[in-house]
Amino acid sequence: MINNLYNVFFDATHNVFQLMLNISDISAQPEEEFKCDDEVDISVGIQGDLSGEVIYRFPVPTSLNIVNIMSGMQFDSVDAFVTSAVSEMANIISGNVLTALSDNDVKCDILPPVLCKLDDDKDYELKTSCCINTAIGEICLLIRLNRAS
């Protein structure tokens, strides 16, 4: 299971998009094709058998589409409401991942989502990206975890 984190995160994202947004048209995308300058980056910390963080990179258009669908209203710019809504979505996806891991005897907890800035200066034992293309835009998950010693 730990060696298959990519699929766990992909499946959790797929399920959440389907249940919350009625979007099932979702496919994997190579990381090099994910190009974004203006994005909302959310970090969800993980503790337990695995420790580190997952950074959810939501491009601004994707963020706005998510909130527009959920609310049935028109959001044209990122503000505290939009940031909070997509943070909760990252939290929900992470929670689903933890449930899947727990079913395979990998026990972890998550920390509350926080806005973050991208940096790549730390080394992690498990470091991978899960970039996803959906009908309402792309998202990319940076998975950075260490096994408990």
């Binding site: 919350m20 909130v67 959920m70 505290a80 909070s84 809504a85 943070s87 909760e88």
Partner: peptide, 14 residues
């Protein structure tokens, strides 16, 4: 309150 609204919306739907 805007933060609360965003989180409440996503939480309730999920």
């Amino acid at each position: 309150m805007q933060q609360f609204g965003g989180r409440l919306l996503a939480w309730l739907i999920n």
